[in-house]
């Protein structure tokens, strides 16, 4: 019997015996995710329950799709879904583009001191929380005494009220997103460039290829796996937003809501005084399912191009 399993080279047991050590090395992480991620995942049922304290998660009565109703009846579901999708796509593309640009430019810099200094500087925004950024932005841009408008008025021009113009925000928000995260993102690409084989570059250089040509033909293609993995990871979060950024920078500003409303801000506004677990779970589930569908599609496309690059 045992020999039969052992001889069956496709078998589960055979694999376990052959690579047992490797699987054992995976165990700590596996156990962690089982406990801290899969176990609580059963709580998805809360989205379909009328939660009460005595019944808890399992004992509370079911209420079908009732928790989703506010979401659908708000009449804004389509709009916020599209907004979320567009903003996050914009963020992801801008983030990747600037991270790569910064990483390549820094890695080509001659001076080590400059490399270090610039990188540290680019990292600073990561530490400023959105609440503080919001106060900063308000102080820079507000109509009455903002630094920018003081200057603009000084030049004899009309002051700008950015908080009244919905068209500006699709630019302002990605700007701050990149501002906050580019230091973070470029680190990965720097590491990836550092891991690249230098010989290729040298050979090409001797052949007379200039640096721009080498970046296009050697550096960038080698960054492709990193780009794809970041893309896939980003797509997996595409329906969740930087809630804090939207909430703090924009505020609940009626004039900007149509242009800046994402799923998370809609849910926050609707539930701010409700304290209802079921309703917030329902929104979370909606986001999860959309993310799931989108990632399956994107991963499928990647898989067709290059199987080894796909996430799963």
């Amino acid at each position: 019997m045992t020999t039969k399993i052992l001889h069956n080279r496709q078998g589960f047991l055979f694999e376990m015996i052959r690579n047992g050590r490797l699987y054992a090395m995976f165990m700590p992480v596996a156990v962690y995710f089982l406990i801290f991620a899969y176990l609580p995942m059963t709580g998805i049922v809360v989205a379909f329950k009328d939660f009460n304290y005595q019944g808890g998660i399992w004992g509370s009565p079911w209420n079908g799709w009732d928790n989703f109703r506010y979401f659908i009846e708000s009449g804004k579901l389509v709009q916020v879904t599209i907004n979320t999708l567009l903003y996050n796509t914009l963020f992801l593309v801008a983030y990747l583009f600037f991270s790569i640009l910064v990483a390549i430019l820094i890695s080509e810099m001659g001076s080590r001191l400059a490399k270090k200094t610039f990188q540290t500087m680019l990292f600073l925004p990561y530490f400023i929380s959105w609440v503080t950024v919001s106060a900063l932005v308000y102080n820079l841009f507000n109509y009455e005494y903002g630094l920018m408008n003081t200057l603009v008025k000084g030049w004899g021009m009309e002051a700008v009220d950015i908080y009244a113009d919905p068209n500006l925000w699709p630019v302002i928000l990605p700007f701050f997103y990149v501002w906050k995260w580019v230091g973070f993102g470029s680190v990965l690409f720097l590491a990836s460039i550092a891991g690249q084989d230098k010989e290729c570059h040298e050979a090409a250089s001797i052949d007379g290829a200039n640096i721009f040509y080498r970046i296009r033909r050697i550096t960038l293609p080698q960054l492709k796996p990193t780009i794809i993995i970041l893309l896939l990871l980003g797509v997996g979060r595409i329906m969740r937003g930087e809630f804090d950024m939207f909430y703090q920078l924009v505020g609940t500003n009626g004039n900007l809501i149509d242009a800046t409303d994402i799923i998370d801000t809609l849910v926050f506004r609707s539930l701010v005084s409700t304290q209802d677990f079921g309703m917030s779970s329902a929104a979370g589930l909606y986001q999860s399912i959309l993310c799931f569908v989108i990632i399956l599609a994107v991963n499928g496309i990647v898989r067709r191009q290059d199987k080894s690059q796909a996430l799963f």
Partner: peptide, 14 residues
């Protein structure tokens, strides 16, 4: 686990 989570209540109780 990135895609689905059981929400805050379950996690907190756990």
């Amino acid at each position: 686990t990135q895609l689905f989570n059981g929400g805050l209540v379950t996690y907190y109780l756990l």
